[in-house]
């Protein structure tokens, strides 16, 4: 009988300890994360804008290098040397906050690189990577529309 007086508090403490500190990997939003070998962060791009498409239930962030940011902010024509990226996720409910949606499954990463061109202000190179593994899409239909969309976006105000 006496053992229970000792055991009970110990068990309560153990139960409390088990609830503490969830595994750190569980706190990472894995389904939204980019594959490590894609090396996106090594590009060192900065945030240009953020948006949501309610019909598609997606959210996107556009990133750019300094040149792309400056051109977009000034509203001047595209120049050679710009790098832009748009990442799109399906939205999901934020399990930590009722009232918020956060990135869910990774859908696409679209990359734009501009280089010097004899005829135009710059040559635009566009790639579209799809799915969790970000496989390069070969089909080029719709590319022009996608490129236009990314260039048209105004940067988010970040004083």
């Amino acid at each position: 009988m006496k053992a229970i007086y000792i055991l009970f508090p110990v068990l309560v403490l153990l139960a409390a300890a088990c609830r503490e500190q969830p595994d750190e990997k569980q706190l990472i939003n894995k389904e939204a994360s980019l594959p490590e070998d894609f090396n996106f962060s090594k590009l060192g791009l900065k945030v240009l804008s953020s948006s949501v498409n309610e019909k598609q239930n997606t959210m996107s962030t556009i990133y750019g290098n300094d040149l792309a940011l400056n051109t977009a902010k000034a509203g001047t024509p595209v120049q050679a040397g710009e790098v832009l990226a748009m990442i799109t996720w399906k939205q999901k409910k934020d399990e930590h906050w009722f009232g918020a949606k956060i990135p869910g499954n990774l859908q696409t990463v679209e990359m734009i690189r501009t280089s010097p061109d004899a005829q135009k202000s710059a040559k635009v190179d566009y790639q579209r990577y799809e799915g969790k593994k970000l496989t390069l899409k070969q089909d080029t239909t719709g590319n022009d529309k996608n490129i236009r969309y990314i260039f048209e976006q105004h940067p988010s105000v970040m004083p």
Binding site: V52, Y63, K101
Partner: peptide, 11 residues
């Protein structure tokens, strides 16, 4: 760098 984005329909 970005940690996450969030769409706050509550506010």
């Amino acid at each position: 760098q970005v940690v996450t984005t969030s769409d706050r329909f509550d506010n």
